[in-house]
Simulated assay, not measured.
Amino acid sequence: MCGEPPFPRSRLAGIGDEAARSLDGQLAALGRLGWGALELRTVDGEAVADLDAGTFRAVATRIRDAGLGVVCLASRIGNWARPITAPFADDLAELDTLAERCAALDCRYVRIMSYPDDGLTEPEWAARAIDRVGRLADRAEQAGLTLLHENCAGWAGDRADRMLRLVREVGSPALRLLFDTGNGVPHGYEAFGTLEKVLPHVAHVHVKDAVRAPDGTVTYTLPGDGRARVADCLRLLLETGYPGTFSLEPHLAVRPHEGMPARDGAEAPFVEAGRRLERVLARLAPYARPVAVPEGARR
């Protein structure tokens, strides 16, 4: 690694289905990287909450036998496919299922978003989104979970002032922020400036990078090769003592929201992106403040 000491792999994870559709492929990719944690979204194309009980038990056993922890379950709650007008009962049911599955996986984080508007006025959209996230946070707190709102789809997805308003008005210890370094490029905002404003509330980080062509086309790149200021974002997090996990979501071969679902064969670019992330973090390690044991999993 060009002479730099390696960044602690205990603080690195990956969204498994970005590497492979099958659980075996996901575990193999993390094994190649030597990382000890997985962020779980889908297995064999099925969302974690949709796996039948027997399949889920087998998944949990397989992950445990591989010696891996699970740092977060990436839900569909409030995401690009569930606008604010969609039945709220679907989100509540998914959270209840994921609460049980978090307990089985020794995991306490669930990723959410804050609902596309579906034609509502901004004030009504805001009120409904804040109300829903608040009710979800109440339920999460009762289950001992923390919801992580991602800077992606929804009312508070692309503006720091809305993210801060969401956290303030929900007012729950069960709601924190998930910051994705690369989401600003496709969503049209400057991610580093957003991170500066919301930093105290960030409890989990996704790493990706991208470039936008003049025609608006977005191409995802290895971390550090795009225009998302990945290194600047990671340095800021390290300098200010961020204690959590850096979870790789490179989008090189898998982009569900663009009709590119998880398929086997994505392992090689995922591993390449992981190695690049390690090198970027190793160069930034001298700027890091000492931190306690990383947050994100109970293990």
Rank of each mutant, 00 (worst) to 15 (best):
L51H: 09
L68K: 14
A99S: 14
T85G: 14
A74D: 08
N79A: 11
S114A: 09
V43A: 07
R32Y: 04
A104H: 02
S75P: 11
D65A: 15
Y115A: 08
R32F: 04
A104P: 00
G31Y: 07
V43D: 01
A47R: 12
G134F: 06
E122H: 13
F88D: 05
V110W: 00
A49Q: 03
R82V: 12
I112V: 15
V110A: 06
R132S: 06
C107D: 07
D131L: 04
G78T: 10
A47C: 09
G69T: 12
A89Q: 12
A53F: 02
R135L: 12
R41M: 06
L73S: 06
T97P: 05
T42A: 11
V70W: 05
G119L: 12
E94K: 04
V48W: 00
R32G: 02
A58E: 13
L33E: 02
R128Q: 14
I112K: 08
R101W: 10
D96S: 14
L136G: 04
F88C: 00
T61P: 00
A93M: 07
L105P: 07
G119F: 13
R41Q: 12
V48Q: 02
W35Y: 10
D50V: 01
F88M: 08
R111K: 14
L98Y: 06
T97F: 01
R139N: 08
G134K: 02
D106Y: 02
P116L: 12
D117C: 13
T121Y: 06
S114L: 05
A93L: 11
D44G: 14
G36H: 10
C102G: 08
R128H: 07
T121S: 15
R41Y: 08
A143G: 07
I112Y: 09
G69Y: 02
T61F: 05
A104Y: 01
R32P: 04
G34I: 04
A74L: 00
D106R: 14
E94Q: 15
G78N: 08
G134M: 06
D96G: 10
A53P: 00
E46R: 09
A86M: 05
D96T: 13
A126I: 00
I130F: 11
L95E: 03
I77T: 13
A126Y: 03
L145H: 12
A86C: 10
G78M: 10
P87A: 09
P87R: 07
I77S: 09
V110D: 03
I84C: 04
R76K: 11
T61H: 11
R76W: 01
G36W: 00
L92K: 12
D52N: 10
F56G: 00
W80I: 15
R64V: 03
R76D: 10
G45M: 03
T55C: 07
A81D: 15
A129R: 02
G78R: 12
L33V: 09
A37Q: 12
F56V: 00
A140V: 05
G144M: 06
E100R: 11
M113I: 01
A140L: 08
L68S: 07
E141P: 05
T42I: 03
G144D: 04
D52I: 02
R62T: 15
R41V: 09
L92G: 01
T55W: 00
C102D: 08
A104K: 03
G67A: 11
R139G: 06
L98W: 03
W125L: 04
L136M: 11
A140H: 07
T121A: 15
D65Q: 15
D90E: 14
T42E: 12
G134D: 13
A93K: 11
